[in-house]
Design a protein around this nucleic acid. Structure first.
Length: 572
RNA sequence: GGGCCUGUAGCUCAAUUGGUUAGAGCAGAGCGCUCAUAACGCUUUGGUUGGGGGUUCGAGUCCCUCCGGGCCUACCA
């Protein structure tokens, strides 16, 4: 039994996430966590909302709430949706927690002690009307290069030229539109990543088998231009972790907070501490996951994230941990994903384009989404959601191949033998062949799941479902029943057991359907089919069951058309 | 501008990292079955691997070039 620490990238607090966000981190992380638990490993699966930063403040201002209230409310909503999608976090924390505040300040203090923090004085744009410093991209104006009048302070979206906010002609606040801006001097802390460049580089080099996506992004940042740059880790905001050196004040940093990307990854650790506190555990209980001097040296730590998060997880967060010179656990494997697009374009939170988590659950149960998203996970390149593809995949895979198999077996049994595992007959060559095929396929499925090859695992699982239909077709219990009812009974006995095996194998992908099947079979035996032949006799002769309701219904053409129109853009 | 990824059947994707005749699923066509959610099974059509050039005994895979798609580019998170 191994110990596996799994973290999913933290969803940002300012609104409900869309399916692209879901499939990029939380959902595959959940698949892996569920599988590993099922195989008997000790799993700690951690996620949290990422609550600090300018966008959270602005979102709260828009609703008229205090930012803390806004975050608390949105955390509740996101947690409820995570539950709706059956994301099996051991703890769903909040980066605004006391635990994260203390840990973030602790790390900053250690980094300062070890000479990895530098104070830098810089000039930044301050908006008098908004009463705040403005991040570059929150300043708009006319591009000096192409004349586009809505260029942002970091880059012109029209001509793609990189800009400095002071380059803009007629600059204004993107928040209020105010032109009452001034450049002010302000002091910030920088994390001296450049001083740890070689250390990080060697660490990346020592990792084997990481996705190309992960290492290529890390290498780019390490070696591009002058190499890894130092990064500002403080901001002039009210909402965030106050800048402190451990428990002490930090002279000159009064009123400033840490940059969200500094405190957000630390929340992985802090959320585990939150888990301990919430469950009456001790510090030792969470430290054994994170401190290599306190039991975490045998932990395997896997992170899941979209590609936009990779630089922070391969560089900044490792730099934070390494620079502390304390024995914190570094990540062992980073599984990164490309983007899921929506029907020819991108999902867009701002334009309300695409399907959002709450909307998805309002029209279909979680398993439909889980299956489609995971079986089409953007592992090698960006992938695309279309309603036509969604309808076809769900109807074929879930309703026809899996659901209908359950239906034909249970209903045939009920009509011929009653709702009970029938006695009589014996297994022969066909059954041996099926067991051999299933054994091969289940071993392949296990390998793909271990390797986090999500699409391949889904494909293998589907093939396992298909094998049941092939077997039934060739075994023809309906024909056998006419001449040799006991032979038909043997076929059905095996097939009923196969449903249990399917429920067990499919659980990481479709947990609700899996639970429904187990309930219909009136069994709590969720043992993994290490020995397929044995697994196919787990439900003994005489064991009662009930014919389940339709496991997966089909999506109709009318629904598809309706949803296509409804989600084309303009969320209410 | 720079960097990375990507382009394979109508669609969604594979191809053991340079090795026989490029494979699956869906869609299409034909046949079979009748237990089942008009479901299932079998067979089958379909590809000059974006174009061109090169290296090699051998290229989807490596190199060059052109064309198309995407992402990142450090103050959004």
């Amino acid at each position: 039994m191994a110990r596996i620490l799994i973290t999913s990238a933290l969803p940002y607090i300012n609104g409900i996430k869309h399916l692209g966000n879901l499939v990029g981190s939380q959902l595959p992380a959940d698949l892996f966590a569920r599988y590993m638990r099922q195989r008997g490993h000790e799993v700690m699966f951690i996620c949290a909302t990422d609550e600090h930063g300018t966008p959270a403040e602005l979102a709260a201002a828009k609703t008229g709430e205090e930012v803390a209230d806004y975050c608390a409310r949105m955390h509740g909503e996101q947690a409820e949706l995570a539950d709706g999608f059956r994301l099996s976090f051991d703890h769903y924390g909040r980066s605004s927690s006391d635990q994260n505040r203390a840990l973030t300040q602790h790390f900053a203090g250690k980094l300062a002690d070890n000479g990895f923090i530098q104070e830098v004085s810089e000039k930044q744009v301050y908006s008098n009307a908004d009463g705040r410093f403005l991040p570059d991209r929150y300043i708009e104006g006319t591009c000096p290069n192409c004349g586009y009048d809505r260029a942002r302070g970091d880059q012109c979206e029209n001509c793609t030229k990189q800009l400095d906010p002071t380059d803009l002609i007629d600059p204004r606040s993107a928040i209020s539109g105010s032109t009452d801006l001034e450049v002010r001097e302000t002091k910030h802390l920088y994390l001296r990543q450049s001083a740890m460049k070689d250390e990080i580089d060697q660490w990346i080099d020592s990792q084997k088998g990481w996705p190309v996506l992960t290492t290529s992004i890390a290498k780019k940042w390490l070696h591009d231009g002058d190499g890894l740059q130092d990064r500002g880790i403080t901001r002039d905001l009210k909402w965030g972790v106050p800048v402190k050196k451990g428990g002490d004040d930090w002279p000159g940093m009064e009123g400033k907070v840490f940059y969200v990307w500094f405190d957000a990854p630390i929340e992985y650790i802090a959320a585990t501490a939150e888990w301990a506190d919430a469950n009456g555990k001790t510090d030792a209980d969470w430290e054994r996951w994170w401190r290599t001097d306190k039991g975490a040296d045998d932990v395997r730590y896997v992170q899941f994230m979209g590609k936009d998060n990779v630089p922070f997880h391969t560089l900044s967060f490792p730099a934070t941990i390494m620079g502390s010179r304390e024995p914190w656990k570094l990540v062992d494997y980073i599984k990164s994903f490309n983007y899921l697009n929506y029907d020819g374009g991108q999902f867009s939170t701002s334009q309300g384009r695409g399907v959002f988590m709450d909307q998805a659950l309002a029209i279909l149960p979680a398993d439909y989404w889980r299956w489609w998203l995971l079986s089409h996970a953007p592992e090698n390149s960006d992938s695309e959601f279309t309603w036509e593809n969604f309808q076809a995949s769900v109807n074929k895979d879930l309703a026809d191949v899996l659901g209908n198999f359950v239906s034909r077996v249970t209903k045939f049994c009920r009509s011929k033998f009653g709702e009970v595992v029938p006695d009589g007959g014996a297994f022969g060559a066909q059954e041996d062949a099926l067991i051999a095929e299933l054994t091969t396929r289940i071993r392949a499925y296990e390998e793909h799941m271990e390797a986090m090859e999500v699409r391949k695992a889904a494909g293998e699982l589907r093939a396992i479902w298909v094998a049941g239909n092939e077997y039934l077709q060739s075994a023809e219990p309906w024909a056998k029943f006419k001449t040799d009812p006991e032979a038909a009974a043997a076929v059905i006995r095996l097939s009923l057991n196969l449903i249990r095996v399917y429920a067990v194998l499919s659980r990481p992908f479709i947990p609700d359907a899996s639970a429904a099947l187990m309930e219909a079979l009136k069994t709590g035996d969720d043992s993994w089919p290490d020995d397929v032949a044995a697994a196919l006799s787990a439900l003994p002769v005489g064991h009662e069951f009930t014919v389940p309701d339709v496991t997966f219904r089909k999506i109709t053409d009318d629904e598809r058309v309706e949803w296509e129109a409804k989600f084309a853009g303009g969320r209410d």
